[in-house]
């Protein structure tokens, strides 16, 4: 008899599993969770760590003094700063200024060390997430815009 009861139990459990899939099949339109990506955009939260960016204001000025704290803090060596000492005409002193703030996105692990190390808040997280490119070299970015300067009120 246990032979038949086992067959019965087997069928019952199989139908039980069926009920779940059937429920979703019937409600297929409502329950779909996938995002139709290029048309539907996913919600990107403010804190999302997509890439390191350097915000510039309307005068094409940024807050990076070229102190290299981020370069030292980076565990992967994904930041390189090319800097120079430029004579400041007002004070007559030579001041460190960045020529290029190079950021290798391909090596970045989004660990936040550089952003926390930055004393002037010159670099922040950007929320861009579509980083796929056809050439690896495009992932090496120069963060400061060409011809940009340090904002005057930024202290070293």
């Amino acid at each position: 008899m246990s032979y038949f009861s086992e067959i019965y139990r087997g069928f019952k459990t199989l139908i039980n599993g069926f009920r779940v899939t059937h429920k979703y099949f019937i409600n297929a339109r409502k329950e779909i969770v996938t995002v139709q990506y290029p048309e539907e955009r996913p919600v990107i939260f403010d804190r999302f760590k997509g890439e390191v960016i350097m915000p510039h204001d309307e005068n094409n000025e940024h807050a990076c003094t070229g102190c290299q704290a981020c370069e030292i803090a980076c565990p992967n060596g994904s930041i390189e700063i090319i800097w120079d000492r430029v004579l400041n005409e007002e004070t007559g002193k030579k001041k460190k200024t960045i020529d290029k703030h190079i950021y290798h996105l391909s090596m970045c692990t989004m660990c936040s060390q550089c952003i926390e190390a930055c004393p002037t808040g010159a670099i922040i997280w950007g929320q861009e997430f579509e980083h796929s490119v056809t050439d690896r070299s495009e992932l090496t970015k120069v963060l400061n815009n060409p011809g940009s300067k340090v904002r005057a009120d930024v202290e070293d």
């Binding site: 979703y24 099949f25 297929a28 329950e31 969770v33 996938t34 139709q36």
Partner: peptide, 13 residues
Amino acid sequence: KVAGWIQLRHGPN
């Protein structure tokens, strides 16, 4: 398509 609808997806579209 059936698989997609069961699995909360659209299936090929």
